[in-house]
């Protein structure tokens, strides 16, 4: 959220310089990595595409309008992904803060959470790609529906729909066990 403030400064100028590019990297590199990881769960491919995306932006830096650059990053990354990705099964391997920040009352409860974690990651991996991306952008990157809609170039209604579908699917998977 703090990101938008830094962008407004550039609004008057067309094109970005090296300094603005560095700020761009600082602000958006991780969320672009996340976006690609949500699609494929492959860290190598994710890094490749994130690098390529920012390199492309660097190469066309003179023609960029700073106020639309964030959505442009998503578009480029998405296109590169379509070109490079060979459809493999998605298997998410995410870390959870609960394991590093918390001690548990009982080992049984810890086991229960571990199992929940595994089921949830498996269920997330099994989601339809579009629904998964929206769900995780909202949950992990803390983006609002409006932000997600702007970044992906879709309507807020579409974001709501995907979010709803993701939750329904996850709930049906989880309810079987919990």
């Amino acid at each position: 959220m703090a990101i938008q403030v830094s962008l407004k400064k550039d609004k008057t100028a067309a094109g970005i310089d090296a300094e603005a590019f560095e700020r761009l990297f600082e602000s958006y590199y991780e969320e672009i990595q996340h976006y690609i990881y949500y699609k494929c769960s492959d860290t190598d491919l994710t890094e490749d595409i994130a690098q390529e995306t920012f390199l492309k932006i660097w190469e066309i830096r003179e023609t960029i309008r700073p106020e639309t650059v964030r959505a442009l990053l998503y578009t480029i990354a998405g296109n590169l992904f379509v070109n490079k990705y060979k459809h493999n099964k998605v298997v998410m391997k995410m870390n959870h803060s609960v394991w590093s920040e918390q001690s548990f009352e009982t080992p049984e409860f810890e086991m229960e959470l571990k199992e929940f974690d595994q089921h949830l990651q498996r269920a997330i991996s099994g989601l339809n790609e579009k629904n998964r991306v929206v769900f995780l952008m909202n949950r992990i990157d803390n983006m609002t529906y409006v932000e997600i809609a702007q970044n992906l170039g879709i309507t807020v209604k579409a974001v709501e729909k995907r979010m709803k579908k993701a939750l329904e699917s996850l709930r049906s998977q989880i309810e079987l066990k919990f």
Partner: peptide, 21 residues
């Protein structure tokens, strides 16, 4: 449970952000 638990996930990375830069 799903909504709250999912917020705690972090994504594995190949390099640190500095290395990537």
């Amino acid at each position: 449970k799903i909504q709250r638990f999912a917020s705690g996930y972090s994504i594995p990375k190949k390099y640190t952000k500095e290395e990537s830069f």
